[in-house]
Amino acid sequence: MSIQHFRVALIPFFAAFCLPVFAHPETLVKVKDAEDQLGARVGYIELDLNSGKILESFRPEERFPMMSTFKVLLCGAVLSRVDAGQEQLGRRIHYSQNDLVEYSPVTEKHLTDGMTVRELCSAAITMSDNTAANLLLTTIGGPKELTAFLHNMGDHVTRLDRWEPELNEAIPNDERDTTMPAAMATTLRKLLTGELLTLASRQQLIDWMEADKVAGPLLRSALPAGWFIADKSGAGERGSRGIIAALGPDGKPSRIVVIYTTGSQATMDERNRQIAEIGASLIKHW
């Protein structure tokens, strides 16, 4: 067993022997301040990774656009098919120029040779490549099948209805392509620590998230040296922004954090800054 596999296998073990965790309302004060600064709703939840206990939450059962955070769930569904012998990570998928959609920095470079399922998941999570996500959605049967996968996990809230990039439209009061912070946090925890996926697939999923290259201005910008984070960000229309993450000190994750916002007129930089400040408060009061 590799060191990384050992780390993920012992996530519940280490967490069980940690000192009790206590909620700190100071972080919620910052979440509410972010709402004021952005002029928009902000949803927040913080779960203990081992027990699933909610440590703090704000608007945990209000719907927010998922945006690209759905790509972690998508690759979880792909990995479940791999575990069941219905898919192979090494299978190569070929596609054409007509398949390319807006923001496809990886797939646009491989029109000639195609990409493997493993490479597509890596591109979808680490670079948020939209064509990679659409190609992977095709392998599982489309958005409705991802929703069905989530329902089978016990998540009857999260739903995907459309493809990239239309799913980022974020129309107010439109339930399409949305989740709730509580539902997303619980589902992410199941994917990373539950028995739904094999140990190898859980490790692969967290490795992809740990290698995320496009979430630097968010929670990662607030992390002290030595902290662990595996995350996936999302951005959408109407001032929408979000991030889902597993993080913790001492090089291992111990909490799940989900943050979503929508309806702001603020710039992307300002949305990023507010999420980073929430992260800084979380870490300060850990």
Rank of each mutant, 00 (worst) to 15 (best):
G226N: 12
G226F: 06
A280V: 14
R91H: 10
D36I: 12
G141E: 07
I125Y: 01
R220E: 03
R91W: 05
N98T: 14
N130W: 00
D231L: 04
D174T: 05
P25D: 14
L38I: 09
H285G: 09
Y44A: 02
P181F: 00
G248K: 01
G239A: 05
P249M: 09
E87N: 06
Y44K: 00
A246Q: 07
N98S: 14
N134Y: 03
M184H: 00
R41C: 06
M180T: 15
R41D: 06
A222N: 10
H110E: 07
P105H: 06
H151R: 14
P60W: 07
G236E: 01
K284Y: 11
L79C: 04
L38T: 09
Q88T: 14
W163P: 08
E270C: 10
G248C: 03
R81W: 06
V214N: 07
G263I: 04
T107G: 04
P25W: 12
L47T: 08
L73S: 08
I45W: 00
E56G: 12
R81Y: 08
D212I: 05
T158H: 00
I140Q: 06
K30E: 07
M66N: 00
I259F: 08
T186L: 15
A276N: 08
H156P: 11
L47F: 07
P105D: 05
P172V: 12
T198L: 09
Q86T: 15
E195C: 09
P60I: 14
E195W: 08
N173I: 09
T179S: 09
P249R: 12
V31R: 00
E145Q: 12
F58Q: 09
E195S: 14
E277V: 10
S201I: 04
S201D: 04
G279L: 06
E102H: 13
F149L: 10
L89R: 06
Q265F: 12
R92N: 10
P217R: 09
H151M: 14
L47M: 14
T131M: 05
A245N: 01
A170S: 14
T158R: 02
Q274T: 11
G279E: 04
S128R: 02
L74H: 00
A235Q: 06
D113A: 11
Y44Q: 00
E195L: 07
H156R: 12
P249Q: 11
M115T: 04
Q97M: 12
S104W: 01
A40G: 15
D83R: 04
H94P: 08
P172T: 11
L247V: 12
